[in-house]
């Protein structure tokens, strides 16, 4: 009991609270990744499927990248389309 009180009083000092907070944020993030082990792979596959319904694509030229920031993350999708397929693209649209 008295120990808990002491802890409370002391909590304001020391680096332990910082450690706890950093861990909580990090683990929330890592646990999310664990549930969806390969989010990027999945996104890449589905984007590839959608785009290749309309354009002939080289699967190796589809690059999906995630950049995690503290507040927002950005998803970058880079698809190289061979010049020959542009005609079909025009016809399709």
């Amino acid at each position: 009991m008295s120990m808990n009180l002491l802890n409370l009083l002391r909590r304001r000092t020391g680096s332990a609270p910082v450690a706890r907070e950093r861990l909580q944020i990090l683990l929330a993030h890592e646990r999310g990744l664990r549930q969806k082990p390969d989010l990027l792979g999945l996104l890449r596959e589905e984007i590839l499927a959608v785009v290749s319904r309309h354009v002939a694509l080289d699967p190796d030229k589809v690059i999906v990248r995630m950049d995690r920031g503290p507040a927002v993350s950005t998803l970058e999708v880079d698809i190289e389309i061979p010049n020959g397929s542009e005609a079909r693209l025009a016809v399709a649209s």
Partner: peptide, 16 residues
Amino acid sequence: RAARGEMLNIDDILEI
């Protein structure tokens, strides 16, 4: 070290 707040305390570890 725990009492001085230099080490993660037990309750924090268990909560995490």
